[in-house]
Design a binder for these strands. Structure first.
Lengths: 332, 332
DNA sequence: GAAATATTTGTTAACGGTTTCAGTTTAAGT
DNA sequence: ACTTAAACTGAAACCGTTAACAAATATTTC
């Protein structure tokens, strides 16, 4: 393995000069730099990052932490996140992936090991970890889950606005009897989406009927159950908004089971645009949650933060997108 | 940040002794070791991995390379792989994730940066990369895609056996007119699965009818098209094996479009057990490809390799599992 | 053309660990 | 008690890089 000292030897200069030349230090004369760069290229020099890290006190790695890798993390989530991050993370950073729930010692998460951290948070259980991060002083961003702490850089989707837009669309198609299957109690996303739902109904002067508000927990089962109870109502809704696609799929299965035709008798809107929402029957109209975009923006902001550590933290929203497929029909 | 020298100072010994004590070197007296360990714990000592790396010439990182992260990689794939790896990778290794197609310079993949590499290969395009790896001498395993090179540690699913088993099951249910939608031409997995298909038919003395062999490319569309052509046959099959679940979903949609009832008129078997195969209508009977197990075994083998570099490379197969759901019915 | 200044390069010491080799205890043997 | 071996500890060098400071060389300036 060749080092800057090897280069120095063949170039007839000191290794310091080589270091400077290769790092674009302006003190070096152009000709010397060119010569050194040529030699380095010829010799196939690759810097030793361990040595660099040691002296620079930089790790050249960014940590990506999911709430859990083992359970619950929807698959497309992980891919989309990694995808988005890779798009903007330049090549001399490497990205390590972790599950928060499998960290044994928070102490191992130190500024020395991570230049920066991305937390793709899906649960309030992450708060302890986030708090620890704050203590260490590692620059970090929390993605996906809206936080109340204004001192933390936070990038999330504008769920409320997105849901409102989707419901506006449904109402525009003539729906008046509209229900919601809510997400897991206590989650910020649950209340945000519910708010968006109500925003739309209220702005169209539609009544908020209690029977049409059903509980769920973001799981497929809960969507099934909630839909079953909605279908049992004496005056069932014509449009149901499911707070995520998983529950929408459960709801869909409930309709099959009850012989309810979609979208003829009942229309359905989901949230997330998971991969398979396009392969359900009928394909699901849903609200795309731009995980890749969130990750991308978050990474960009994080890197900004690394470069100037005293920039003010902000809460950023990225727009959702209404994906119109075939699970919503006009009311005749 | 506290270092071994700090510990040495409070313990009243040299930093050498501390290093030894903390690394389990047997030369150190038990009492000294205990004392040092206690102090280290109290002081919340965390070793500086950059320094360790520098002197030990170890990076403490394992690289996980997918064919691509941006495109094509099915989502569950990524999660399952990471999941499996995390289960067996001990905590002082960190796992970095990469897409082979976005590596700009192979030169950056050096033994210094990676103690070992896991290649989750999904395409022949990875061969150039694998070849480069071989050159560098980094210990590595190729997962998921069967290689012909016996010099490479390779962990794959036993597709052939798995498909045979699934078809045996279908034949046991009375099916005699059985078709296959093949995978992408040229892929090893395509021929393996086709072989398993034929194995079963032949062992049951069923004829191999050419019309029942249709081409696909592992994409949803191709499954749709292939199924359309099968349904147009004058004597259509009663059971169709789709070489992956994506194509099975395409096939399913073709059936909807043609008004063919599943599994009443036609039975369907997929391959992979992707997340959504349980939410199709009817839920898909399929062959689970144990990506997590493959990753787990691969990681274990890789670590073994790191510890004794001269162990012989092997090709390992892990068993698939038939997941019986409701897309296959008995012939009446 | 010498002094002053600007530009370029080199010397040396870190960074935080491990390891070789030498030195000091402690225990054993006589 | 006295040598001798065994057990333990320490001093110093090293891993490959950057950086503070010193030194050398080139360029102005008068």
């Amino acid at each position: 393995m060749i080092t800057i000292k090897d280069i120095a030897r063949v170039a007839g200069v000191s290794h310091t000069t080589v270091s400077r030349a290769l790092n674009g230090n302006p003190l070096i004369k152009k000709e010397t730099r060119d010569r050194i760069e040529r030699i380095a290229a010829e010799l196939n020099y690759i810097p030793n990052y361990s040595a660099k890290s040691l002296v620079m006190k930089k790790s050249y790695t960014i940590g990506l932490f999911f709430s859990s890798i083992d359970q619950g993390t929807s698959a497309s989530f992980l891919v989309d996140a990694i995808k988005g991050i890779h798009q903007v993370l330049d090549e001399n950073y490497s990205l390590t992936v972790h599950g928060i729930d499998s960290i044994r010692h928070y102490d191992a998460i130190t500024p020395r090991r991570f230049d920066g951290v991305l937390v793709m948070s899906q649960s309030e259980a992450d708060n302890a970890f986030i708090y620890h991060l704050k203590q260490t002083g590692i620059p970090f961003v929390v993605l996906n889950r809206q936080l109340d702490d204004p001192g933390i850089l936070n990038v999330v989707a504008n769920d409320r606005e997105g849901v409102r837009e989707a419901l506006d669309y449904g109402i525009g198609l003539g729906h008046r009897k509209i229900a919601i299957i809510e997400g897991k109690a206590g989650f910020k996303s649950t209340t945000e989406r519910k708010q968006g739902f109500m925003d739309s109904l209220i702005s169209h002067r539609l009544p908020l009927v209690p029977d049409y508000f059903t509980a769920g927990d973001y799981g497929v089962e809960s969507g099934y159950n909630a839909m079953m109870s909605l279908l049992s109502l004496s005056d069932p809704p014509t449009l149901v908004f499911c707070s995520n696609d998983d529950m929408a799929i459960g709801a869909l299965n409930a309709c099959y089971a009850r012989g309810v035709a979609l979208p003829g008798q009942l229309s359905l809107i989901g949230f997330d645009d998971i991969l398979f929402s396009q392969y359900t029957y009928p394909p699901l109209t849903t609200i795309r949650k731009p995980i890749a975009d969130i990750s991308k923006l978050g990474t960009t902001k994080l890197i900004e933060r690394l470069e100037q550590p005293d920039s003010a933290p902000e809460q950023l929203f990225v727009q959702t997108e209404l994906i119109v497929r075939q699970s919503v029909a006009a009311v005749t």
